[in-house]
Simulated scan of single mutants.
Amino acid sequence: MSKHIAIAVFPGFQVLDLVVVTVFEVANASAGEERYKVSLVSEHGGPVRSSSGVPVTTEPFGDPAAYDTVLVGGAMEMLEYSPGLLGFLRQASVSARRTGSICSGAFVLGRAGLLDGKRATTHWAHARELQKLHPKARVEEDCIFIEDGNLWTSAGMTACIDLALALVEKDFGVELARQVARKMVVYHRRSGGQSQFSALLELEPKSDRIQRALNYAKSNLKKELSVDELADAAHLSRRQFSRSFRLETGQSPARAVETLRVEAARDMIESGRLPIDLVARESGFADPERMRRAFVRAYGQPPQAIRRAARQSA
């Protein structure tokens, strides 16, 4: 049976959030039948201009009970939201099977009073402001998406793809979600509890040579990864490499490698059932105690606490 998805937009919305439409479109193509019907809806219908100036055509809000899922997108800046939009979302939270937000759309849900007593996430840059505005919510700033009952929220920008893939998986199974991810040339969706941050993005190397060394390190975390080995990967002398690496990333090679190892270990801990000692070996730590110390430095808590949190979230 086809599921009707309504995506609510408003003047000044962020057009990137509409990439979720493609996830549902590809799900239909992969299944060979209409699994999803998608409607863009707004308070009055007609053209609605995004923050980039690109307009989209919308239908007026319908009866929320007619929709399986109602999602609301975000905006590049905080806006005033109309009583009509907020009222529609309140009704949808009761009548539709699921209600959710993309990126800073969580602020719209908050204004509608839908976050109280709920776990939620949003773009990491706005998470603390969301928590401040809605103290009765439990805002988790480092999650890709969160499902709390019939309320779904996602992190910023492209995390909406992970949210949509999770909805497809929930509705029609993991295999269809995998097919969609492959066709969209994205990783099969990141787990909801996975960090919004990427160590490689945080390091931001300026040159191809330092980027090459980091890529080599990420692909060979089980090796010792000495400075000489990384310098060879960058085709630089040890002295040139060490100086350039610190100038470009602000870190020593050893600290950067530890960051990559911690990120890889956290992914394994959150998404699998490998014993902690095996995770330590697979991510290149000499022993679990060394990994524990690295986790405390990076996250303020040991691997076991992160595994417990991931299981509770699941």
Results as ranks from 00 to 15, higher is better:
1 M>T: 15
2 S>C: 09
4 H>R: 15
5 I>F: 06
8 A>W: 04
17 D>Q: 00
22 T>H: 05
23 V>P: 05
30 S>R: 14
32 G>C: 13
33 E>R: 07
41 V>N: 10
44 H>I: 02
44 H>A: 14
53 G>F: 11
59 E>T: 07
60 P>V: 10
61 F>S: 10
63 D>C: 08
66 A>F: 08
76 M>Y: 07
86 L>T: 03
88 F>P: 02
91 Q>K: 12
94 V>T: 04
98 R>G: 01
108 V>S: 09
114 L>S: 08
122 T>D: 05
124 W>F: 10
127 A>C: 00
128 R>V: 00
130 L>D: 06
133 L>I: 03
137 A>H: 04
139 V>Y: 09
139 V>R: 13
140 E>R: 12
149 G>Q: 06
156 G>E: 06
165 L>A: 11
172 F>E: 14
175 E>N: 11
183 K>R: 15
187 Y>Q: 12
191 S>Y: 07
193 G>F: 03
202 E>I: 15
203 L>P: 05
204 E>K: 14
210 I>T: 11
212 R>P: 00
212 R>A: 15
213 A>H: 05
225 L>H: 00
229 E>F: 04
229 E>G: 04
247 L>Q: 13
248 E>Y: 02
248 E>V: 01
255 R>H: 07
257 V>C: 00
258 E>Q: 11
264 A>R: 10
270 E>Q: 15
270 E>C: 10
287 D>M: 08
294 A>S: 12
300 G>P: 10
305 A>F: 03
310 A>R: 04
311 R>W: 05
